[in-house]
Design a binder for these strands. Structure first.
Lengths: 158, 158
DNA sequence: TTGCCTGCAAATCCTTTGCATACTG
DNA sequence: CAGTATGCAAAGGATTTGCAGGCAA
């Protein structure tokens, strides 16, 4: 059940905070909860907007969002991807590792994972004596929806 | 012969400029030439420093470097990779497509290419009805040199 | 000569930091 | 209570933009 999963996640977060002499605050919980509930990629600004909208009583500054995301990323509770000029986007790291198809027309992100590619990557690293700690694989292009839109335009429906 | 290749590249660049009603200037040529001669990844600042050093008479501003790189990237003469906070690095796109091993300790970049991975990527795109226009594959970690340095430290040579 | 280019400096964008106050443990 | 965390505003770093003079076509 998903509320159970959230509880587990929260416990983990609290433990990390305790171990690091950091404090458990309402702002930090709302950031974690928002990432959990929405299961999507957020820019820091989007996160702040979302929290301001859903919890108007909780005053939350952008600096706090950045500070909290940095903690969450450091302890691998979230991961980030960055592309183009548009800064970083964050998501919860509770999903198994996966890569991204990114539509350059509408900005939508599709996730996928592929064991064969991962295996190949390890082979390449070994060849160069390189120790991989993480990887980024982004396939850029145009998603199905946008391709259809383009087709419609070309056919010229009146 | 490599000077011939550079000539070809230059002709291509001039053609693009002409077609776009852009002008051929000394600054633009030096940027292209520097990228060509050094065959490595440059940040805009490194490019500017390199040009200032090698052509001290040519006053070149950082804005011009950025503007020129944006043109070159738009017309696929250069490609960029971005990682971490540290901004973008640019290289000429005349090499066959390749991916990058990036050392997070020393920042060095190793290039590689792998046909099997590329094939897999196409399969994934097909599955999602996605049209790939480009991709980014970065393997992050620690390079051989840095791993050796770490080992020395641990052994504790006096 | 026209209009794009340039360097410079100012302006932006995104992210981090300093500070006084507020809150957690 | 001590020590963090917070919001705010200021500071930073990277990139872009506005402008007046300079240069390519």
């Amino acid at each position: 059940m998903s509320s159970k999963n959230y509880e587990q996640l929260l416990v983990k977060f609290k433990e990390i905070l305790k171990n690091q002499n950091l404090k458990y605050t309402a702002q930090r919980e709302m950031i974690l909860k928002t990432l959990y509930k929405n299961k999507k990629h957020f820019t820091p600004e989007e996160l702040q907007d979302n929290i301001k909208h859903n919890y108007p009583k909780l005053n939350i500054g952008i600096a706090t969002v950045y500070r909290t995301l940095n903690i969450l990323e450091k302890f691998k509770i979230v991961t980030s991807i960055s592309f183009g000029q548009s800064g970083k986007k964050y998501e919860l790291a509770i999903k198994p590792h996966h890569d991204h198809l990114i539509c350059d027309m509408c900005g939508s992100i599709i996730e996928f994972e592929d064991k064969d590619i991962e295996k190949k990557q390890d082979e390449i690293a070994t060849k160069y004596g390189f120790l991989i700690t993480s990887h980024i694989l982004q396939l850029h292009g145009i998603c199905k929806k946008c391709r259809n839109k383009l087709k419609e335009k070309k056919i010229g429906i009146k």
